[in-house]
Design a protein around this nucleic acid. Structure first.
Lengths: 233, 233
DNA sequence: TAGTGGTCTAGACCACGCC
DNA sequence: GCGTGGTCTAGACCACTAG
């Protein structure tokens, strides 16, 4: 293993596990050099990567500070849906994680090696001010996440659970976005009329665990809260 | 000016101007060191940045190759709309660039210092297989782009024109996405029925020129061609 | 003033591509 | 075999923060 990658993974894991929490300062670059028998160039390369991925912020004269991770990932982001609408969001679990077959509602083609695995599915309704704004369905192969159905969600967040319980991070996504008319089922849950326009977002998340892909189908009522995101170089 | 930034800007400008075109190899790292009296560490820092921004690709054992720039920028990307729908796209100019007032159709607040400047607007219709799929409206302050209305578009691309004629790059964006019912005007142009669902995307692009912000309002018929994008760490 | 991160130098060895 | 990019070392000086 390359030295800078080794340090990078070691620091990232400590952040994910909570050894360092947001606001903490990591060991200084010189301390890291001593601890790992490397030069500053190598230590900085690891820190550069953590910085780009949003895990830390470098403060000139102070140190490297752990941040809330909120890098944008396409439409949504690693922190999840609440930032995309910019409001406090409650989640109601309509269907707790359970073993189901792969659904034909999934818009992206399910990878062949995953089709043979059993599939975990859960469905949530996201509300802002008690008003339902998004219906969320997720599917993924159960092989990568043993005992997932027995676990609770960390802070109600699926991504946080992946990170803190399984050390799995989202590393990429593909999305398709459509404006559709609401089906009677979607309309009932979002408390709108069948035929009203809804935003339909299909996402295929790739993760740091090669055998885990997450398929999501989201239906949003955007009349009150449009989906927002931003990007900066 | 820092040495690595100076080299970075110099190489980027040569790529934008066409001194190096996609497929070309930049001077090797050692050549850059000789030419600019710097060490490889410094040269590599400049190249690292160009690589992250998608201008070049590093080929181990070969060199640094200039790429078509296609980094994703939120929903759309710097190459523009054609990649988002993944098809060949024709553009019909409905309203050529002209001086107009700032429109109240712009969803993002126009910056105060821009409100007093005169505003250039143009409107295009994007078609796939002769079918209209997106109506595009753009507004921006004329101060940053003298003579813009007299210029033609490079390869029919607004972003390419900004880069090659003004050396201005898109560096960030904010977006809001909504599913709406089509107004009679939008429906007529997209050849759908008033009341059909359309995807409404509002974008505010920030650029490398501090006094230029681009405001876009897009209306998409996503029945045939959903808007796609992907993101990778 | 001591410690931190930001920049830069002048080397070294390696793996990869191509001839 | 030679040149390329990828990794790494062991220093140096600077600007910034904080006690």
């Amino acid at each position: 293993m390359l030295k800078y990658k080794s340090l990078y993974h070691s620091l990232k894991k400590e952040i994910q596990q909570g050894t360092f929490i947001p606001g903490d300062l990591l060991p200084s670059e010189n301390e890291l050099c001593d601890q790992h028998q490397i030069t500053r160039t190598t230590a900085r390369k690891a820190l550069d990567e953590l910085q780009r991925e949003g895990f830390i912020e470098r403060l000139h004269g102070k140190g490297s500070q752990v941040r809330e991770r909120r890098k944008s990932l396409g439409l949504l982001n690693v922190k999840g849906f609440s930032e995309a609408v910019g409001q406090q969001v409650d989640a109601i679990m309509l269907q707790a994680p359970d073993y189901r077959g792969w659904s034909d509602r999934i818009q992206f083609p399910v990878k062949e090696n995953e089709q043979s695995a059993s599939c975990i599915h859960f469905e949530r309704l996201r509300c802002v001010n008690e008003e339902p704004v998004m219906l969320e369905n997720n599917w993924f192969a159960s092989t990568a996440l043993p005992n997932f159905c027995q676990l609770g969600f960390v802070d109600g967040s699926f991504f946080k659970t992946l990170s803190q319980c399984f050390f799995i991070e989202i590393v990429g996504s593909e999305q398709e976005i459509r404006a559709e008319v609401a089906s009677s089922e979607v309309a009932r849950l979002l408390r709108i009329l069948p035929g009203d326009p809804v935003l339909h977002i299909s996402i295929c998340f790739s993760t740091s665990h090669s055998s885990l892909t997450i398929y999501s189908e989201l239906y949003c009522n955007t009349t009150q809260y449009p989906i927002g995101n931003s990007y900066h170089l």
